[in-house]
Nucleic acid binder design. Structure first.
Lengths: 132, 132
DNA sequence: TCTTGCCTTGACGTCCGCGTCAAGGCTTAC
DNA sequence: GTAAGCCTTGACGCGGACGTCAAGGCAAGA
């Protein structure tokens, strides 16, 4: 298949595929007129990349998975290097979630404090709120 | 005080302060030779911005807080517009944390599956795990 | 034949919060 | 006088993953 069809089947764009190729993640054969052609294996590889991207993996982090598939493994994560990436991503996610949770608590506390101070101000003057 | 001192006292750089000024978040008087000068109120305002930035707020999201302080309020979050930002940020954080938690679970599951398949191949050959 | 719709490469634009460099002016210390 | 250390504006760079436009080639249908 050509680049347009591959992009459509993977739910992405031709620009993205050319970008992946420029990064060395996706390769393509060429027809006589210079058009790129791909097969089902390329689609599988591309879907692996997209799945990881959706998980928030950097493009570089998908490389071990790509190389694993290229090496003939049926799954991109059937290689140690891929597992290493999984683990570091898990650690990264844990750290991020923890930090965001902390921030959430702090912002929540600020909101509570501010809300308690606002309604009518320090010295309630009644007639607060809208016309209701 | 001049820009260098303000930056130092706020733990940031002069470049950052000029950037904030270009965004209309920080204003400065000028001395005869064109140097920017700031007072303690500017420091307070700057610290408000920095705190929110550390929480992950976009610069634009700090604007209501800045305007609130400029309006004479003792706290940047003493105005309704600031509370709106707090609330939307909380919602944003909740959504993000939820998504990341979901991703974490999926990646964790993938890792577990891949790990189960790797050590010795699909057919367990014992002697798995470390030397312990 | 001509239009339509694929495809090609190349290159600049986007977003955001600055970093960094350039070229120069002012002030103070020595 | 001059070097150091502050300040000024202007402008390009960065990272990441592409979007978008330009200018053109190729193939197929009416």
């Amino acid at each position: 298949m050509r680049i347009g069809e591959l992009a459509a089947r993977a739910g992405t764009t031709t620009r993205t595929l050319r970008y992946y190729e420029s990064r060395g993640l996706l390769s393509a054969r060429r027809t006589g007129n210079g058009y790129r052609t791909y097969d089902e294996d390329d689609l599988k590889l591309l879907r692996q990349i997209r799945t990881l991207q959706d998980f928030g993996f950097d493009l570089e982090e998908t490389r071990p998975f790509v190389e694993c598939l290229r090496a003939g493994h049926p799954e991109g994560d059937a290689c140690p290097a891929s597992l290493v990436v999984y683990r570091s991503k898990l650690a990264e996610l844990d750290a991020l979630i923890e930090e965001l949770t902390s921030v959430r608590a702090q912002v929540g506390a600020q909101l509570a404090r501010a809300e308690a101070a606002v309604p009518g101000g320090p010295e309630p003057k009644c007639e607060l709120g809208g016309h209701a």
